[in-house]
Amino acid sequence: MNWIKNFVRPKFESVFRGKDDTEENLWINCTECGEMIFHRDMDDLGKVCPGCDHHMRLSTKERFELLFDSSYDLVDSPEVPVDPLKFKDQKRYIDRLKDARNKTGMRDAVSIGVGDISGVETVVVVQDFAFMGGSLGMAAGEAVIRGGETALEKNCPFIVVAAAGGARMQEGIMSLMQMPRTTVIIQELRDRGLPYIVILTDPTTGGVTASYGMLGDVHIAEPGALIGFAGPRVIQDTINEKLPEGFQRAEYLLEHGMVDMVVHRHKLAETLGRLLRLLIDPQSSQAKQAVPAGE
């Protein structure tokens, strides 16, 4: 990729083009530095700003495509009771759910994919912040469990790409119960000696971090991702003092020993592949299936 294409043209053209230009939406502004990026370049870059290296949020599809070597299969998530509490705030939860489904084309926040990463068959579960803030409700919890079960069936590694504001408030206690429920499946993977890797993306907070998000064999964070238990606003309100610079960011967690590494998105698939091959015992049957012949 040449730097003129990435840098100069957007800024240059933005000066000469009117605001109503039909191609305007082909340009995407970096949410951090405002840099304009051509949409096709954006996809090639994995939505990492070429100007400031800011990692923007990926859709589920983009995430699967980033991690898997090539093709992958989607696994259906189980049906769950809808709106267990008949919850209503200013709006009915069932209507919020409908809106989110229409907006995203997804049933809920978590999707399951199976494919190869560096030739190792792996189950990847992706939590999508675009669907009601990625929040962990019954559907999401059940999808994480099904993902884990799929890994158990296939005797292969399990990866969760976490992103969520936390629990799905509108499902009340049933949302909270997804914390122990998902923990059960992680324990079963552990009992079987299957690797479980967590990728913490922006943002991962609340009940997700306080359950499967912090129980990985290896924790990888994306640069700059907000990761924590309580949200910064809640902490600010409680202690009434300014939060330190970089507080709850991926690099801060690395420094405080909560994640193993902060990995640039362009290096993520490669890092995962290397890790999976190091974690899998070549003597076990699972490795025969996982590591291609000739190695």
């Binding site: 971090t209 924590g228 238990f229 902490i235």
Partner: peptide, 9 residues
């Protein structure tokens, strides 16, 4: 802050 620093989650 301390609770977060020391890994509350």
């Amino acid at each position: 802050i301390g609770a977060e620093e020391r890994g509350q989650s």
